[in-house]
Amino acid sequence: MRLRSTPPSDIKPDEITPKSLYLDRRRFIESAAAAIVIGRTEKNSFSTTDDITERKAATTYNNFYEFGSDKEDPSQLAHTLKTDPWTVVIDGLVAKPLTLSVEDLVKPEILEERIYRLRCVEGWSMVIPWLGFPLKDILARVEPTGNARFVSFTTLLDPEHMPGQRRSVLEWPYREGLRLDEAMHPLTLLAVGMYGDVLPNQDGAPIRLVVPWKYGFKSIKSIVRISLVETQPPISWNLSAPTEYGFYSNVNPEVDHPRWSQATERRIGHFLRRKTQVFNGYAEEVSGLYTGMDLRVNF
């Protein structure tokens, strides 16, 4: 077990760009055919200065039930996933639906590094440097129509390469959803990389959602479809256990899960539990989205 013995460094993690990170990032950006250069990967006021979780932890301790329900399963089994070619459909209530390869989808976007806290509903958390772009930028390209109120996301359905889908542990394919204003929030990210490199398969390659103020399962992985819809879309964990997982699933220390207290969390790599922050510490940015809502009812 690793215990922390040194005080955190004064240097903010996002001010350090080791050579290996630089090279990895360039390799990634080349392979993703993104039309940007290193200098334009912007630093960002949304990034936390918390210590970044070890990459090894973030790539070996995963909840990705498509590859099994043990934390180690995805890192051992996800290599079978074929991420090239990969097509993403953006459709529904939009003026300009898109069906694009992930490369063409990402090419016009400016990638940013965002260091976000990730809080799992199971009571653990990590700090991960994502590479991606705001979801709102893509939504602007497809022009949602006036009656679009929600965004529905779907993961690939491929039991041949996703062994977890051969058993009905959840209703496949995995689905998630956001209200349109949540989806348009500048914190909401579509990530294509992490730790300066392409996303490993077990972390949701080639493209995944990151919504840092919600429990981790909202941040759907390996997306093939994004649909703009009028009514609240069904989401997988809510279908599986409606009393345990709500549609909103905002990080909230006040609302307990039947299996886990949500008052505290264990940051991976640290020994003592710490207090969980409302909206995972992003209250200043997002609490306005929920004015007038009872978050105990809409958990």
Binding site: M1, R2, A58, T60, Y61, I268
Partner: peptide, 13 residues
């Protein structure tokens, strides 16, 4: 396994 640091990302769990 604990001494070898071989308990994964969440050794307590």
């Amino acid at each position: 396994r604990a001494i070898a640091g071989n308990l994964g990302a969440n050794p307590i769990e």
